[in-house]
Design a binder for these strands. Sequence first.
DNA 1: GATGAATGAGTCTTCATTCAT
DNA 2: AATGAATGAAGACTCATTCAT
Lengths: 201, 201, 201, 201
Amino acid sequence: MPKISDEKRAARRAQILEAAWTCFQKDGLHATTMDHIIRASGLSAGAVYSYYPSKDDLILAAVATSLSGLSAIVAPLLHAEPPMSPSQLVGEITEAIDRFASRDGFDLKRIALLGWSEAQRNEQLRATMKSFYIDFRCDLAGALKRWRDDRTGVEYDVEADMAAALLSLVLGYVVQSAVIGDVSPQGMVDGLAQLERAAVE
Amino acid sequence: MPKISDEKRAARRAQILEAAWTCFQKDGLHATTMDHIIRASGLSAGAVYSYYPSKDDLILAAVATSLSGLSAIVAPLLHAEPPMSPSQLVGEITEAIDRFASRDGFDLKRIALLGWSEAQRNEQLRATMKSFYIDFRCDLAGALKRWRDDRTGVEYDVEADMAAALLSLVLGYVVQSAVIGDVSPQGMVDGLAQLERAAVE
Amino acid sequence: MPKISDEKRAARRAQILEAAWTCFQKDGLHATTMDHIIRASGLSAGAVYSYYPSKDDLILAAVATSLSGLSAIVAPLLHAEPPMSPSQLVGEITEAIDRFASRDGFDLKRIALLGWSEAQRNEQLRATMKSFYIDFRCDLAGALKRWRDDRTGVEYDVEADMAAALLSLVLGYVVQSAVIGDVSPQGMVDGLAQLERAAVE
Amino acid sequence: MPKISDEKRAARRAQILEAAWTCFQKDGLHATTMDHIIRASGLSAGAVYSYYPSKDDLILAAVATSLSGLSAIVAPLLHAEPPMSPSQLVGEITEAIDRFASRDGFDLKRIALLGWSEAQRNEQLRATMKSFYIDFRCDLAGALKRWRDDRTGVEYDVEADMAAALLSLVLGYVVQSAVIGDVSPQGMVDGLAQLERAAVE
DNA sequence: GATGAATGAGTCTTCATTCAT
DNA sequence: AATGAATGAAGACTCATTCAT
């Protein structure tokens, strides 16, 4: 049989990945069987396996896709001009996550929790997530630096800790949102603002 | 064998739970098989099942135990006199978590991630975690209120958002610690302090 | 400890057997666990096993008890004076079975089916049932002989086949009653009468 | 492996069912494990389960197959022209059952008892059997009607009771045959004949 | 004698993966 | 290349029976 073109291959991969994504986020990583994914993809078992050689690969790909989707959405916020303040960042990012999450009934937050959990057992997945979050934090640090430089005219050096704190706020928002369910971006912004204000009272 | 004493029963339950805890945190919730737990507990399958009627019960018990252990460690911090400042709280709590986590080779943070993930599919577990975190946030709000009242002599009303933000910092610390691994309590404290300072510059 | 008196032993055996009987007829032979019986009997596992060394023994005893209960109820009919006609016998016996069956919510017919089924696998049970039914058929033959001798003044010898046919009618009644559920003793009597009448038309 | 043809599928189903049939009638319904059936079928566990999704389905299918096999054998007798007399019917049907039973070492009577027993606990099975026996009785009634109409030139209406009695004779024959083992079709015929004769003496 | 906690082989079923066609 | 039937090694859980106390 003739070789399949590269675009076809890419399209197939995307088709499978989308099916996996949907299944994973609906049923969780372990309750999703390959059969679910195979059916959802509309392909045959053999076909799916020829594109992704194992379920773990599919999990990795699905999580990586989520991360890069998130990345795409968050990037403009991190590089916005003029740069945002910390609480603006927290507000805009959490809001963006909510927006992304609710697109097409997908829930990014659920995938995030599933991914963190799975990362404990899957070396490669952990590496992927680790480097993603490190990049995220770097960009966050960059954004904070630009904001402070703009405001003060002074060049600060290390916003690493600030970035970590800010990332914590975002991640903690995701957890609370998924587990408790009663948080809002505005609440986070207000909470941080109060924290800042209280410090100087 | 005649009727076993209540303490013996409790001891057996603890023995099984400890085995489960260890397995869960080493291999994750799903990769841990009942057989692993049974072997680790040193009992027979029937004995284990007579104390915990299903794997889900064991998961629930393991997570609940983690939560209440954490609760016991954090409570004194939340009710300390004089009340702590927000950044002190973040520092002390994250440090307590680290300390608790490293006791006996257990890693509370990993169990936390596993629990959040599992809570997506296990109604009862989600309920348990939800009420735990709501309580946590309440106590956090109480601690913040006492701190502000002490400092300002004024009675503030709503620290709900502040508490949510603070809880986010703690949860986000847990995530970063488990997934990235390069955060420290001191870093969080410094990060928050910088956030506060930056706001007024 | 002092030896238990023989009456006590007998009472205990009866108590256990009754519990087993009830469980068996409610849930079937295989779905009934020893634990069910143990709980229903109000004794301990060890106690039950000291009276009946295995579940199979209990099954055997329960079926044997049913059979002898049935026997006690049917005997007077078979030895009634004056002797009954075949259709009277069918009517009275099936009616007696119905009556016996509905006592205390027990259903003799269900136990009968369960016993027949189990007899396929349990040598001893089959032997017990076999000898019971052979006796039953003998008594039936005796009753028929007395009836014919009375009527005709002649001594017939072999009513074995008649007895087998009559027993079939009774057993078939039990099956239809348990599986279909729309038969009545009167219907059987009428059916047999019609069969007889049709033969001479 | 590409898509399998419908005949192949049917052949596989038959292959599995035959294995199940053999196991069931040798060991009984509950003592037969899926593993027995799987080994007997020569397939793998997964393959068997892909054709019959549970043991209960297999039981149902085995019993249903027995019933329809029986049906096929008995039907010609019930619609024979000229119609048979009651005792002829009893004789021919029981003989047909014996013949069917001994084919290939299968024993239809044993399966019948097993099925009746199982029907007490399996709703679907009971429904299947019930409708089978009702149909059987209807056909029996039809056969009896045709016989009487032929003989008397009169149209009788209700042979329902006669049919029930005749069915009892057949079912009772099965029970006695399986449990006692010393009955023969000829004995049943003779027994019924004697019953008829005795009635008019 | 009595107790009931403990045993552990055995049950049904699932599902990631392969490979003959 | 693609198919999807087949594989078979686990998996969670049960339950008749035993025996230390």
